[in-house]
C-alpha cells in the first residue's frame, strides 16, 4: 500500500465505515429512531412568556416527556404540557394545583385544597389572588402558572381535561 492511499482508507473508515451498505442501514435506523423519539417521547420545547416565572424563564429550552403520564395521572405540584387545539406545535406549560374530585380556591394568594392550606415552595411571590371555589370533575385538573404577581385577568389558569395533558417537563 502506498502512502497516499492510507489516509484515504482511514477517512473512508471513519465516514462510511468498512461496509457502506451497513453504514447506510444504520444511519437510516438511527434517523428513524430519532424521528420517533423526538416526536412521540421527548419533545424539545421553548418557553414563550413569563407565566411560569421564576421556575421557567422566557426563551429557555426544555424537554417534555410525553410518556410521563402513560401509566399514572399527574400529581399536585408537577409541571405539565397541555395540548392546544389543532396539533402539538404549541403547548401550554402549567403547574398542576388541583386534582380530580378536589375543591380548590385561593384567598389572598393562599391556595386552599379541600379546605386545607397548601404550601407552594416553587413560588417566588405568592401574590394576592382570591378566587372562589372550583370543584373538579373526575377527569379534570386545575392548572396555573407560577407567576402569581401577574393580575388574574391576564394569566391563563383554570380547569383542563385529563386528555389534554400531553406530558411532563424536565427542568
Amino acid at each position: 500500500m502506498n502512502d497516499e492511499s492510507q489516509p484515504a482508507s482511514l477517512l473512508k473508515k471513519f465516514t462510511v465505515g468498512e461496509n457502506v451498505k451497513t453504514t447506510v442501514r444504520r444511519a437510516i435506523l438511527l434517523a428513524l429512531f430519532c424521528l420517533l423519539l423526538f416526536n412521540y417521547v421527548l419533545l424539545p420545547v421553548r418557553v414563550r412568556g413569563i407565566s411560569m416565572e421564576p421556575t421557567f424563564h422566557d426563551g429557555s429550552w426544555h424537554v417534555a416527556n410525553l410518556l410521563q403520564f402513560a401509566t399514572r395521572g399527574p400529581r399536585r405540584g408537577e409541571v405539565v404540557v397541555i395540548s392546544m387545539v389543532g396539533g402539538r406545535r404549541t403547548l401550554y406549560l402549567k403547574r398542576v394545583l388541583g386534582l380530580p374530585g378536589e375543591t380548590i380556591h385561593f384567598f389572598n394568594g393562599q391556595m386552599i385544597v379541600n379546605g386545607r392550606e397548601e404550601t407552594e415552595p416553587y413560588l417566588g411571590d405568592r401574590g394576592k389572588w382570591t378566587l372562589p371555589q372550583v370543584t373538579l370533575a373526575a377527569d379534570e385538573y386545575f392548572v396555573a402558572g407560577d407567576n402569581r404577581t401577574a393580575p388574574l385577568e391576564t394569566h391563563t389558569l383554570g380547569v383542563v381535561k385529563r386528555k389534554k395533558i400531553a406530558g411532563g417537563v424536565f427542568r
Binding site: K94, V143, E153
Partner: peptide, 17 residues
C-alpha cells in the same frame, strides 16, 4: 375554544376590565 377554562370570576374580571 378554551383548552384551559378560566374560573367564572376571571372571565367576569376580563369582561369588566
Amino acid at each position: 375554544l378554551e383548552t384551559i377554562q378560566p374560573p367564572g370570576k376571571v372571565r367576569r374580571m376580563i369582561q369588566r376590565g
